[in-house]
């Protein structure tokens, strides 16, 4: 299993169907279930690779914290612009921050920001989408219009204005909140269109006729069926939030006193690191590239899981 998974699963010869796997092992037993999951994962290398990359990044950040103090990521812990050495494994930047420590603490800040903003955006968006799709009428028209207008506006430009106003007082938690302000739009629209389809499904009709309350219909009938879809849009929301957050930080609009990865990109430009031939540009850039690729792979893998029809296309 050490071989690198084929990045083009769509090209692989048509994989066995799920039903076939289920028939091989006795149904219901825990071992059979684990076996089925393991077999499925073998056919979905994108998901596995994506989760491994993201897990690796998380582990790097969490384990790194045990060995490196937070103070190392602050300016002036070492001499400025030091090449890699025994004391600073990845060297220091022109502010005298230890690059390895910045990577460890910065990746945690980035992941936390993306997770928070994605979660809030997803929760608010799904709630609006549920309401719009389920009740219809004017409620739906107003929410849809609002989402449509706001979707045409590129989020980052508004975030630029908001964060420019708050610049000095900003923390990475505040960043997450600002990004969450606009992160609800896409989930709202997607959830709404899913609800529109499901609202008239037989089992929802049945629940309604048997007198189930609206919350009960939403949480017990509709939500479980939407789960794979909701998880997939959550990952997209997290990726979008990280994209927006790193973008803002790279413009110099991030929190000034925390070692975020995006601000490191900003310092690269600010100090003209390239002109001076500094080499510390690569670690943050590569770390971010790995993060984005991991989120992409997870999303593509989940897509395949949620839409089995995609598999046949192979």
């Amino acid at each position: 299993m050490t071989r690198i998974p084929d990045p083009a699963p769509i090209a692989s010869p048509s994989p066995p169907r799920v039903e076939v796997i289920a028939r091989e092992a006795p149904r219901g037993s825990a071992a059979a279930r684990i076996l089925a999951i393991a077999r499925y994962l073998r056919r979905n290398p994108q998901l596995v690779l994506g989760v491994l990359l993201l897990g690796g990044l998380l582990a790097f950040s969490l384990i790194g914290r045990l060995f490196i103090e937070a103070g190392m990521a602050q300016p002036l812990v070492g001499p400025a612009s030091l090449p890699p050495g025994a004391e600073h494994p990845l060297g220091t930047d022109p502010q005298g921050r230890d690059i390895l420590a910045v990577m460890v603490y910065g990746s945690w800040l980035t992941l936390r920001m993306g997770f928070l903003a994605g979660l809030i955006g997803m929760a608010a968006g799904s709630a609006l989408g549920f309401v719009a799709g389920y009740y219809g009428g004017w409620t739906d028209r107003i929410i849809t219009w609002l989402v449509d207008v706001l979707l045409t506006v590129p989020a980052i430009l508004f975030l630029v204005i908001i964060s420019a106003m708050l610049s000095t007082a900003l923390t990475s938690f505040g960043m997450a909140m600002i990004i969450a302000l606009l992160a609800w739009r896409r989930p709202a629209r997607q959830v709404r269109s899913q609800i529109l389809v499901m609202r008239n499904a037989g089992y929802v009709e049945m629940a309604r006729l048997s007198g189930a309350s609206v919350p009960s219909i939403i949480f017990r009938e509709i939500a479980p069926n939407l789960m794979p879809f909701l998880i997939s849009s959550f990952i997209i929301a997290v990726a979008a939030a990280i994209l927006a957050g790193i973008g803002l930080e790279a413009m110099g609009l991030g929190p000034q006193n925390e070692p975020t990865l995006g601000m490191t990109i900003y310092w690269i430009m600010k100090f003209s690191a390239f002109l001076l031939g500094m080499w510390w540009i690569l670690p943050p850039v590569l770390l971010l590239i790995i993060l984005f690729v991991a989120l992409y792979l997870i999303n593509a893998g989940l897509d395949e899981l949620a839409n089995p029809r995609l598999r046949k296309r192979g």
Partner: peptide, 29 residues
């Protein structure tokens, strides 16, 4: 073709400016 298109799709997940930084490092520096 499959390999090339899958690779390009993975690239599409990376923001332009990060690719730009790598390109600067390799081709300019």
């Amino acid at each position: 073709l499959q390999a090339v298109s899958s690779m390009l799709m993975v690239f599409s997940a990376i923001p332009f400016y990060l690719i730009g930084l790598v390109l600067i490092y390799v081709f300019a520096v």
